[in-house]
Amino acid sequence: MAEAEEVKHFGVKGSPLSLRVDIALRLKGVKSKFCEEDLQNKSPLLIKYNPVHKKVPVLVHNEKPIAESLVILEYIDETWKHQGPPILPQDPYQRANARFWASFIDEKCSPAICKAYWEIEGHEKAMEEACELLQFLENELKDNKFFGGETIGFVDMAASFIGYWLRPIQEAVGVEVLTKEKCPKLYDWCDEFVSHSVVKEVLPPNKETLIAFFLGRCESTKLLAK
């Protein structure tokens, strides 16, 4: 009899990066143990498994740790390629394109959105930049339901922050960078994303808690709408 696999996910409930891993594991039907981390008091195991960055998420598969959320998604896709639907496209060009847009989200979109909401200096310029970057994602969706076509995939998971967290931020701050008028396709994609059966199973259950957190953050930066 084959030895049972052991899969652990060190993360934080409510973290967009941890959510990526939760979605991928659930989509592939991989059973795992979630290990909640307190980032103010990181566990010795987290430091052991991710000594370089000391951050979540970390996936530990049979005592072999993998760090960085996008790297973890690829690992899950390759390791359990015969389980569940693929996360990355099979075509080499489409795979490369998916990696490009996932990096674009992490390196461009998310930092610009955070800057637009949390920084006072250059606020208007930051808002304009965030809207411009979201327009690129709007165009990339084309007429597809998800970034991967009709099924959820790598780029959709990478964009989980936009799909679920951006609207609570907008509600908390009172300023919108994503609207139905400006980005109708991306706006509708958010609804499709949070309504997906796998995503619904792992989303944080309490949006009010998220909104309260963002309100506190906004008050500290004095960016609340008057």
Rank of each mutant, 00 (worst) to 15 (best):
R217C: 04
E140Q: 15
S103G: 14
K42E: 01
V202L: 07
L70T: 04
S43M: 06
T221P: 00
E176W: 11
L70K: 03
K13G: 11
K55H: 02
D143F: 13
A130K: 01
W165I: 06
V177I: 15
A67L: 05
E36I: 08
G174W: 02
L166D: 00
N139W: 10
T151L: 13
R20P: 00
L224D: 00
I113S: 00
K54L: 03
K145I: 13
K55V: 03
V21G: 02
S43G: 03
Y75E: 02
D143L: 14
R167D: 12
K185I: 10
V173K: 04
A112L: 02
L88F: 10
K42W: 03
G14A: 07
S43C: 05
A96N: 05
F213H: 12
G153Y: 10
W165E: 03
L224C: 08
E132I: 08
Q40L: 15
S103I: 07
N144M: 11
D77H: 08
H9C: 15
N97M: 14
G174P: 00
W101P: 00
V7D: 01
K33I: 13
E37F: 05
K125L: 08
A96P: 01
V12C: 03
K8A: 06
D191G: 13
I120C: 04
P16M: 09
V202K: 05
Q40P: 00
G122V: 01
G148Y: 08
P204C: 11
P44Y: 14
L178G: 02
H123A: 14
G122W: 01
K115R: 08
T179M: 11
E176G: 06
K185V: 10
P184F: 13
I162L: 15
V56Y: 01
F100K: 06
I113N: 00
Y93I: 11
S69N: 02
D77A: 11
G149H: 12
L134D: 01
H9N: 12
F161P: 00
G14R: 04
C183K: 09
E208Y: 06
G149E: 07
G163S: 08
K125Q: 14
V7L: 08
G14C: 03
L210M: 14
Y164E: 03
T79R: 12
P205D: 10
V71Y: 03
H123W: 05
I66S: 02
L19S: 03
V177D: 01
I72W: 02
T79F: 07
L134P: 01
L133T: 03
D91Q: 11
H82W: 08
P168L: 12
Y93D: 04
P44D: 09
L17Y: 15
E138F: 10
P205Y: 11
Y93K: 13
K222D: 02
L45V: 10
L137I: 10
P92A: 12
V173T: 07
A172N: 01
C190V: 08
R99Q: 07
N206V: 14
V60I: 13
F146E: 04
P92T: 11
F147Y: 08
K55L: 07
E37C: 03
L59D: 01
